[in-house]
Design a protein around this nucleic acid. Structure first.
Lengths: 163, 163
DNA sequence: TATTGTTATACTCTATAACTATA
DNA sequence: TATAGTTATAGAGTATAACAATA
């Protein structure tokens, strides 16, 4: 019979009145949609680039943050890059397995630990940074600098509305 | 001893010359970074809102696309929302388990299948659409409309540079 | 052989909550 | 009890590649 599925006649059923009273916004009308699509897109490109060095985007973020911060406690790191402590633990574990990061007890409060890049990790950061620069340029280079600044400002506001 | 980890003296070691010749761009300098952070942020908010109806953001995208497209083949759907066929199969499977979508054989080429919303699925879409509207407004409402348009245009270009 | 769709596998990324050790 | 960190669990999201059925 090839009976029509329930939704098949939807448009016709909604008719004129419904079409007016019930104007559903399209998928593409939401900025969140484009944000998700673009982010996935860009992230995958970055993953490919970093993959040559066996590092993932999230791992890169941890490494880059450590590079600037020096040895810090996991909780501090989590706060800086906006992740939970559990998420940081997992990323750090992976980086430790790759000998890019080390963990040690701090001298004072024994509950605290200290995370730091290893020599190999610190050495790798500039190389990775260049890949990230290139990836970012490839993705956004066509956008005028002024527009990029506008976008960055807007995205920052979204994440930290308190600022 | 509390020996310093390898990276501890990094800054001092790099010194003046290195600081000039080797200026690594900060994490926050990359638009890709903010895109990822903001996208995760917004996506989680949306997930919370849609979660009340047992639907995930990715599932919503499929439902919304079906709502407009009517019954279509999985491959067509995949093309429209920019996913692989495998990914679409998985999402559709989940939606079928929730009785929001049905799958049937098309009349012609037996390789083709047809995906369509069920009555329940079609009925749910407008309600979800409103949640998505609200979520999008909550996330981006503070951004001027003009800026939003600029951002959307830029993101579109990133995803489809061929356009 | 080429194409459609499914299945199997494998990863990333993230969160929540329970648990351990320390304070 | 409160805090730092870990561990366990869970689930979303995606991709790739091998496979079956059909053309």
């Amino acid at each position: 019979m090839t009976r029509k599925p329930a939704a098949l006649g939807r448009r016709a059923n909604r008719g004129v009145a419904a079409a007016v009273s019930d104007p559903i916004s399209p998928l593409e009308a939401h900025l969140g949609y484009w944000l998700r699509v673009a982010s996935n897109h860009v992230d995958q490109q970055l993953a490919r680039a970093l993959g040559a060095h066996g590092v993932t985007p999230a791992e890169w973020v941890v490494m880059r943050a450590l590079y600037d911060a020096g040895p810090v406690a996991p909780s501090v790191l989590a706060g800086r890059i906006g992740l939970t402590r559990g998420a940081v633990t997992k990323l750090v574990d992976r980086l430790r397995a790759k000998a890019l990061v080390v963990r040690a007890h701090g001298p004072g409060d024994r509950r605290y630990q200290i995370i730091a890049l290893t020599g190999a990790g610190a050495k790798l950061v500039p190389a990775l940074a260049q890949l990230v620069d290139e990836s970012d340029s490839a993705a956004f280079g066509a956008i005028p600098a002024e527009t990029r600044a506008t976008i960055e400002a807007a995205l920052r506001r979204i994440v930290a509305p308190a600022d």
